[in-house]
Computed example of a mutant assay.
Amino acid sequence: MNPYATEPDDIPPSDPYADLPLYGRYHRKQNDFRIDLRHVNSQSNEALSYWASVIDLCDENARIYPADDGGRDVFALGSIIVKSSHLHKQRSTIYGNIDFSYADANEIQAIAIAKSFLKDVKVPEIYFAGKIDGRQVLIQERLPGVSLAVAWPYLSQAQMESFKNQARGILRQMHSIKPTNTCQFRSYVVPDPKIRSNGRIQPLECDILFSDYNTDPDMSFMHNDLTDSNLIVDDDRIVGLIDWEMAGFFGWKRAGEVHRRLRPHDDSFWMDLYEPDKLDP
């Protein structure tokens, strides 16, 4: 099978994502849902009413990732991706209600940084981040292509090696971006003051990133969630990178430890992405 196929009719029943035709595969079409550009990043009453109407279109048929309690579902609606918890009852988790406003602010600022140096790899445009009916919502561009995780079963060994090398090239580009402020403590791009207690990240990740002396000699910009599901590919190239909410300034070794110990890997081939000897080309 063509790893980069996006049409549901081209996906065999044996495909791991055959029951989720909207997940990880997208090709723009004329009749796709498209947002009204007049309301992009607007918080006016008219805009909020419009974005609420968009949320109303996000039902279970459009959901591509169901969240646990306290999290946000992910929906694919034509040309956009929506993160929202509106299909869940409003209730507290053991951490209380998670405030995703810091995650969204971090994603917005991290994408702005990424745009400055990722010239051949696209990052999504953000169309809206704010409260709808008391819930934090993020609406962003849906990048054309196929998630590397979705394409993976159909790749040759040579293609797998090529994608790993391309991903390492992206990591090296990020590693060249240093913090602009004088503070050299590990941090997200937009620090979350309650990150240790609000349940956004696992306790182990919090310990890895923010315990001990909380600094690294090689602090640099890191995506911090560079899994195969967040890489968008087409025609043997990485063409997009999504989900920047965990990005921040961390050392290579520190980000690598998070990657190995906490990020999901369906294939052990991807676990050594941050090996120390891979920092240099």
Rank of each mutant, 00 (worst) to 15 (best):
D225M: 05
Y4N: 09
A76C: 11
E7R: 15
A5Y: 01
R91V: 06
W270Y: 08
T93Y: 04
V54T: 08
S42V: 04
S220A: 15
M246P: 03
D9E: 10
L241S: 10
R135A: 02
V123C: 05
I139A: 09
D225N: 15
G130D: 01
F269R: 07
T182W: 13
S49L: 09
A114K: 01
E60R: 11
H88T: 06
Q159P: 11
I113K: 07
V189N: 00
G130T: 02
N97V: 09
D133Q: 13
D9S: 14
L37H: 13
M246T: 12
G199W: 04
L226C: 14
L148W: 08
Y17R: 12
S53Y: 03
R186S: 05
D267L: 03
V123Q: 05
P193I: 05
V189P: 06
D59Q: 11
I11A: 09
I238D: 02
M1C: 14
F185W: 01
E161A: 12
A105G: 03
L57I: 04
T227L: 10
S49T: 14
L155A: 03
I11R: 08
V150N: 06
T182G: 08
M246N: 06
D216C: 10
C58E: 04
F185Q: 15
E60H: 07
R254K: 15
I55M: 11
F221Y: 03
Q157A: 15
Q109H: 04
G71T: 03
D99H: 05
S197G: 10
Y102G: 06
R25T: 08
V190S: 02
L226R: 00
G24I: 07
D280P: 03
V54M: 05
S229I: 03
H39G: 01
N97S: 13
S85D: 08
S220P: 11
I177Q: 14
M222Q: 14
P12K: 06
R172N: 02
H27A: 13
K178Q: 14
A67R: 07
P193N: 13
F221R: 09
S147G: 14
D235T: 07
P217V: 01
H39Y: 15
G96F: 04
C183V: 12
D10A: 15
D236P: 05
L155M: 11
T182D: 13
T180W: 10
L155F: 05
N45T: 08
P191Y: 03
F33Q: 04
Y4D: 10
G248L: 06
S101E: 14
W51E: 02
S197Q: 14
F185V: 07
N198E: 05
N31V: 07
Y188K: 02
